[in-house]
Design a protein around this nucleic acid. Structure first.
Lengths: 345, 345
DNA sequence: GAGAATTACTAAAACGATTTAGATTTACGA
DNA sequence: TCGTAAATCTAAATCGTTTTAGTAATTCTC
């Protein structure tokens, strides 16, 4: 609870430009322009003003700046309030915060409720100008939010790609490559009959992943299909039920599973083992995961690493660059998976 | 991209009080007071003003309100940028957002970097008045942030308790009860030699948990101790190493493990099994978890449910009530665990 | 050495809201 | 019937910042 060391201008109040104006004897606008390094302010004056600002611990009043300029110094992260399987939201937020450290930007998390119109949060932000930029995820190929933001010329970056590839900033993991890698890894282990628990198929990355899967399967000359009636985002019970049906169905016996989430992987291993299939013996499973959680599962699971924090860092930099230089080309990054890790037995 | 249906006052601009003033022919302050339901505005006038506001889709400019009143309509959630084991942050945020739905409050996540002074984020918020209230977690008994906020009279609520129990709003899970339940469950299964992987011992809830453990152990006349050199918040490798040392050490053989986190539980099961001990046979383990993740682990793990979303909901309500009626007694809630769930085999 | 250009600052206005003080109208009491 | 109170509205000021326009002093140009 140490107080500030006897502020020279004794006032319990927070210092404003007026405070510095009084200290230096300069007019308020001069102080403002000096702090903003305007060209028509003398070097010596700038030095004096900055010293005074430093001394009293001046920080610009955000409401004042915002009211006058319209700049909010806020970046809005639009997220669903639904459970995310693993740590996705948490990691995205904390990595964005880390990347924004030292800047004037705050992060506001704007909820998107499943019952709402998808556009609502984004419209709200744009109409009330409550942020300088928006970060979106769970992107569909013709995402209406992206279309809206592009039409309005509002700065944004997405985790995931649309079909308007060259027109906005994005970060994405290369899910087609993941699909390819996964199939190849299973093929190399002699697996011939694969099933994938894909993300919801309206999402771009789900389509990418499936494209990778089917392409690689065709090349390798083996069977692959997507689990019906469940996605990797569904609740465990739903995935479990769908898998049970698939396992019990007639036809060639499943000997390879591909999943895009940790949770789906655990459910799948569980379901297969309950059906009497031994992991690593009767079948293999490839899972994409952000943590090293599956390693603790004590099964020979094949994993592909995907660090969500990379997304947060990249997206934060993308919007920062955008706000600094609106004319610059949008930052776009496609992160390729490094390879398939064989879990220890 | 549907436009608003022909706004009666044709202007691309966002409506302000001035817009409504023009429509109704009333002065701006009158409009303001009408919308704020001031006593000196006539009923008919209020009706007219509200109708006009509705019609043009008026939403108060946050910067204007904030500048004039000092109210920010922001609730700050102070979180570390470190990884949280499971979904803690994510669930806390989304449940808070859900509870704040329909209010004017935004949630700003304020990062706390491990290298910083603990007080820094909170000081920043108070000094720059960048939020109306703060929510804190990872509370220590004499948490300096809590002391600071109490001294400043700044509204806040904590997830976790301090030693200043009656003086601030909090939500907490009853970790002493958890400790007691856990020991009793293990004792009932004939386990005599327990080890606990506790949270960092500076945290209040860790101390609570250990108090519960030792109390129940004494009553049941059995051995219990806390794992040295590692806490449930540590990285998997650290916990693993510490556990290996404990398992290899001389003395009575460990036949019961208690852990406060999903991750620590997985690590513990892993370590024990690598040492040749079979879960549910040679030893039992009790874990507290917020998800139903461990059920998929296919081990007879005993779990105690703890829904983080309860914390977020309760804390949001606590600060809302505080902001509405500063004089009211702070909301305090201690959530007891419902019992120990035996995992299926 | 006079006019033009440059430098370095100040005055006034504005962003959108609320608050305080004051004005006008109507109703009321004696 | 007149002063007073009550009801309802308006005018002006203010929060802290930035912008636009303008002023004064200095330097340059030929």
């Amino acid at each position: 609870m140490a107080d500030a060391p006897a502020p020279p201008v004794a006032k319990g109040e927070r210092p404003t430009l007026k405070t510095i104006s009084r200290i230096t004897g300069l007019a308020v606008p001069t102080v403002s322009r000096a702090l903003n390094d305007a060209p028509d302010i003398g070097q010596e004056t700038k030095r004096r003003v900055r010293a005074a600002a430093e001394e009293v611990g001046y920080l610009p009043n955000r409401a004042g700046v915002r009211l006058r300029t319209g700049r909010t110094n806020v970046i809005s992260l639009v997220l669903t309030t639904e459970d995310d399987g693993m740590n996705y939201n948490s990691q995205l937020i904390s990595s964005m915060l880390a990347a924004l450290r030292g800047t004037a930007y705050h992060v506001v998390v704007t909820p998107y409720f499943p019952s709402d119109d998808v556009l609502r949060p984004v419209e709200y932000i744009v109409e009330t100008r409550s942020a300088d930029a928006v970060v979106l995820n769970q992107i569909t190929p013709r995402d209406p939010r992206v279309a809206y933001l592009m039409a309005r010329g509002f700065p944004f970056a997405t985790h995931g790609r649309t079909e308007w590839l060259d027109r906005h900033a994005y970060f994405d993991f290369d899910n087609e490559a993941f699909g390819t890698l996964a199939v190849e890894a299973l093929a190399a282990r002699g697996r011939r009959n694969l099933i994938a628990i894909a993300p919801p198929m309206d999402q771009t990355y789900a389509m990418d992943m499936v494209r990778g899967l089917t392409g690689a399967a065709k090349s390798a000359g083996l069977q692959t299909r997507t689990l019906a009636d469940a996605t990797s985002d569904d609740a465990s019970a739903v995935i479990d039920a769908a898998l049970r049906r698939a396992i019990a169905a007639d036809g060639p016996v499943i000997d390879g599973v591909i999943t895009a989430s940790t949770n789906a992987c655990m459910v799948a291993v569980d379901a297969m083992e309950r059906a009497g299939r031994v992991t690593g013996v009767d079948f293999d499973i490839v899972a994409k995961e952000g943590t090293d959680f599956l390693r603790r599962f004590r099964r020979p699971i094949l994993t592909v690493r995907e660090d969500v924090r990379d997304a947060g860092t990249s997206l934060a930099h993308a919007v920062l660059q955008m706000l600094k230089d609106p004319a610059a080309a949008p930052m776009q990054e496609l992160r390729r998976p490094r390879g398939v890790l064989g879990a220890r037995a």
